[in-house]
Write a protein that binds this DNA or RNA. Structure first.
Lengths: 189, 189
DNA sequence: CGATTCTTTGAAAACAGTCAATCTGTGTGG
DNA sequence: CCACACAGATTGACTGTTTTCAAAGAATCG
């Protein structure tokens, strides 16, 4: 699973073997079974997770017990709860595995330290955060400006992978509609 | 207007007079009349704007000519189109003034340079980006998980200022509902 | 005051949600 | 290898919410 990470890093930045070895020395591997939690609501998030295999989701549960999926993430994506990590407050989100998965975890302290000591790592993380911010903006625009049908079409176009690996009801949750509505809307095409 | 910026900086970080003077030397002041554009769809965004006075919005216009407001920003907030700035691609958004406003602009190059040369400035910008990311996450959660009525209540609670300064139709646009729906929903309380 | 902009209201139509039932495919244990 | 259980997807009937379009009412500003 380190090879996946190595390949990712080399794709993002140029970096010396020594620096990469240093980064790697702070990474901890973790395996997750389907449905296993990486973070639970109420916990303080202390790690950044790089996914080397599998598929995860982050979501929150409302007062009615309904789940709302904020984000899916698969191989070569990062996941964590930045809010909880930065504020050191209990998280309002859950992260769990949709498939059996493998992640590398970097605790907050190590991440900060590596960002300082290894500029290439810092650049990589900052680029990732920039991309998250852009993706979030686009998602906000989409949710306020399109119909359910367009949202679904855009999702399928942007993330065809997820469509194959994620149950439909979870896609509905991600889009903010009910599974029934999604089912009907698929038929009308 | 530099005093507003100075006060903001001192609230965020500790910094020497010399460093502040350096930052200030790269800031350009700009006044905007109500309705004047700071960025137009199709332009490449080359600056970060710090607002010292007034109120602005960033929004996009869809194929039907309807506006969708992504964000409001007022005194002591930053605004720009990060996507366009990072990718050097034409922006999909407009930024314009809702009230007569004043901003300090930092071009992309100066911002990068200052972030490197003045660590406190770097920290300040990164903190701001972190907060944006968290705010975006919260907004996404809210849009997919709450009813129009809750969205409005949350907005009023979180941003009471905007409610006083922004026309209702723009709040509706921000929330992703029609002005008529917002008007009716206000009555039912 | 008159013009423009913003908000409210009404009635009909479109859309999405709810609840309960059925259908489909997969995988497991007997 | 079958039967059954289970999770996920679909369907139907009904309810409730939001949009649309058009018109009328405030409010603001030069």
């Amino acid at each position: 699973m380190f090879e996946v990470f190595r390949a990712y890093v080399l794709r993002q930045v140029t970096i010396s073997e020594t620096d990469f070895a240093l980064i790697e020395s702070f990474a901890h591997a973790k395996k997750l079974r389907k449905r296993q939690y990486l973070l639970q609501e109420g916990d303080i998030c202390r790690n950044n997770y790089f996914i080397t295999k599998g598929l995860l989701r982050s979501y929150s549960v409302d007062n009615n017990g309904d789940e709302h999926i904020i984000r899916f993430a698969m191989e070569n994506w990062w996941i964590s709860d930045r809010e909880s990590m930065l504020t050191q407050q209990p998280s309002r989100f859950n992260i769990d595995a949709i498939e059996d998965s493998e992640v590398l975890l970097f605790d907050n302290g190590s991440t900060e330290m590596l960002m300082e000591k290894v500029p290439a790592f810092g650049k990589m993380i900052r680029d990732m955060l920039n991309k998250s911010l852009i993706a979030s903006h686009n998602r906000i625009l989409e949710t306020i400006s399109t119909t359910a049908e367009e949202k679904y079409a855009n999702f399928m176009q942007r993330y065809p992978e997820f469509a194959l690996r994620v149950p439909q009801a979870m896609i509905a949750s991600y889009l903010g509609i009910t599974p029934e509505t999604l089912s009907r809307l698929r038929k009308r095409r």
